[in-house]
């Protein structure tokens, strides 16, 4: 899986490269709009992470040119929050999603995986053990039997599944579930309530938890051992 990251902050580029490479993605980087375009037209990428504020050529212009050239690569815009205009423009120009800085790795991974699944080439169903979550029909089943989850429980489970095998913090879960307008500090206290209910609903055997608590960090979902 080939990802191009375009950002003018070298430190951030480096960190993103390390984190994504750890998740076994192949990462290439560009530090300005022109360089990004050169690379896009030379190599086939599966996904582009594109910052809006770029030297030489800004992110929106890069996106416009990519789409005009008929390239359908999923593009995740990295924006400064509240730039509603930028956000709307980005989506108008054909961006697939946007993520505002600062963001967490868990959120980024969830977005990337969701985007990669959306193009139809990959299976839209996420799973852990006997639990399956269909990201398109938005249904959750256990051993083929449909489970009745609330919107928040679904959102939490989807986020955990996108980050399968990695621990996710309460804070990041809260930020994801409630959205950025809410204060994640207030909300993170209530993640446990939802996790508790979620566990009750998806539990297969009494002593078999697929959602585990990592003390001091948060939660992790894995295939049941």
């Amino acid at each position: 899986m080939n990802i191009l990251i375009v950002d003018d902050d070298l430190g951030l580029l480096d960190q993103l490269r390390t984190s994504l490479e750890r998740k076994r993605y192949r990462v290439e980087t560009a530090v300005n709009g022109e360089q990004a375009l050169d690379k896009v037209f030379a190599v086939t990428y599966d996904l582009i992470l594109l910052d809006i504020m770029l030297p030489r050529l800004d992110g929106l212009s890069v996106l416009k040119e990519v789409r005009q050239a008929g390239l359908n690569i999923p593009v995740l815009m990295l924006t400064a929050r509240s730039d509603v205009e930028d956000r709307v423009k980005g989506l108008d120009y054909g961006a697939d999603d946007y993520l505002s800085k600062p963001f967490s790795m868990a959120e980024l991974m969830a977005r990337i995986r969701a985007m990669l699944r959306r193009d139809g080439k990959r299976d839209p169903v996420l799973s852990a053990g006997s639990i399956k979550l269909d990201t398109i029909s938005r249904e959750v089943t256990r051993n083929g039997k449909q489970l009745d989850l609330t919107a928040k429980e679904f959102s939490i489970l989807e986020f955990l599944l996108h980050n399968k095998g990695s621990a996710v913090s309460r804070f990041n879960l809260a930020e994801h579930v409630w959205g950025e307008d809410f204060d994640p500090f207030s909300m993170s206290n209530f993640i446990d309530v939802h996790i508790k209910n979620l566990r009750k609903k998806i539990k297969t055997h009494k002593d078999l938890e697929i959602i585990r608590t990592i003390r001091g960090i948060g939660f992790i979902i894995d295939d049941a051992i």
Binding site: D9, L12, K101, A167
Partner: peptide
């Protein structure tokens, strides 16, 4: 605006270390 990128970087690396 200028603080955003460094904070993202801090957050990502701290999360990375924690994992």
């Amino acid at each position: 605006h200028e603080l955003k990128s460094p904070i993202t970087l801090l957050m990502l690396s701290q999360e990375e270390m924690l994992m």
